[in-house]
Design a protein around this nucleic acid. Structure first.
Length: 101
DNA sequence: ATTCTGATTGTTCCG
DNA sequence: CGGAACAATCAGAAT
């Protein structure tokens, strides 16, 4: 367990922190994104007719329903995507450093 | 050093 | 076109 429990992120009050960077090196995607990318086709096929109201929620439930090993490929992708972010992060760093002239 | 927070990411669906 | 449930994330900023 990391820390406390209740931690509603997005209180909108503290949102004014993290000053947006000049080129904002947006972070990478998340496992869910990769998972949804593959499952969306599958879930939609197994749940014909269901609207986002159902599919969306079902998708999330199924996400954890998979075995950790199943999430592996998605988590792996997420990790790989993060690396991608690291690259832009470095570009952002270089740009920032090169900006002073 | 440690803690936390916010920003972001992508899917589906519709009006 | 965007928003909202769904989940992860995680890197940097504040303490």
């Amino acid at each position: 367990m990391p820390k406390a429990a209740a931690t509603k992120r997005g209180s909108k009050e503290t949102k004014r922190r993290t000053k947006k960077d000049p080129n904002a090196p947006k972070r990478g995607l998340s496992a869910y994104m990769f998972f949804a990318n593959e499952q969306r086709e599958n879930v939609r096929e197994e749940n014909p007719g269901v609207s986002f109201g159902q599919v969306g929620k079902i998708l999330g439930e199924r996400w954890k329903a998979l075995s950790e090993k199943q999430r592996a490929p998605y988590e792996a992708k997420a990790a790989a995507d993060k690396k991608r972010y690291e690259d832009e992060k470095q570009a952002y760093n270089a740009q920032n450093d090169d900006e002073s002239s």
